[in-house]
């Protein structure tokens, strides 16, 4: 049975109907049409769906939509647009950290939490910060450089 909930995504409150078993990822992608958060596995294994929940990075595929009512969800749609990119977005471009890009949005959200809590992380902290996110193209090296670059700016 669907229930109506209020979902605060990127400072906009949406009233949507969800099934009790619907994940936040599903609500974002299929109900709200916010496609930046990607499905890579649906089981908390890849991190492509990572969003911020009250500033903390979570897997939106492992978070029930019903659980997040009255909390703030931030997705890549809530970061910068091309006209005014968030420093993390610009750093990913400048470091050539984006190949296929499917993991990029999730990793940027993990990096957002990391940089919010630790503005000058060393390499080890960055590696730990993104260790819940898989990338199959880059070997992570340029992603780590991008996060370093963003922290320096």
């Amino acid at each position: 049975m669907k229930q109506i909930i209020q979902l605060d995504v990127n400072d906009e409150v949406h009233e949507i109907a969800v099934q009790p078993y619907d994940s936040l990822l599903r609500a974002l992608r299929e109900t709200l049409g916010l496609n930046a958060s990607k499905r890579g596995c649906d089981s908390g294994g890849c991190g492509c769906c990572t969003v911020l929940l009250d500033g903390k990075a979570v897997y939106s595929c492992m978070t029930m939509a019903m659980q997040v009512k009255d909390r703030k969800v931030t997705t890549v749609e809530g970061l910068g647009k091309v006209a005014g990119l968030d420093p993390i977005q610009q750093a990913f471009i400048d470091a050539d950290a984006v190949q296929c890009g499917y993991c990029t949005c999730g990793i940027m959200m993990a990096a957002k939490q990391l940089l919010a809590e630790n503005p000058n992380p060393d390499e080890d902290a960055i590696r730990k910060g993104i260790s819940g996110n898989l990338c199959r193209c880059t070997g992570y090296q340029k992603i780590i450089e991008a996060i370093q670059l963003a922290s320096e700016r």
């Binding site: 890549v76 091309v82 471009i93 050539d96 890009g101």
Partner: peptide, 21 residues
């Protein structure tokens, strides 16, 4: 030269053109 990848802007702002979307 390591020019900026034209698709990178799209991908850091959500990547709307993947077939999955």
């Amino acid at each position: 030269k390591s020019v900026v990848r034209p698709d990178a802007y799209d991908k850091v702002t959500g990547g709307k053109h993947y077939p999955v979307n």
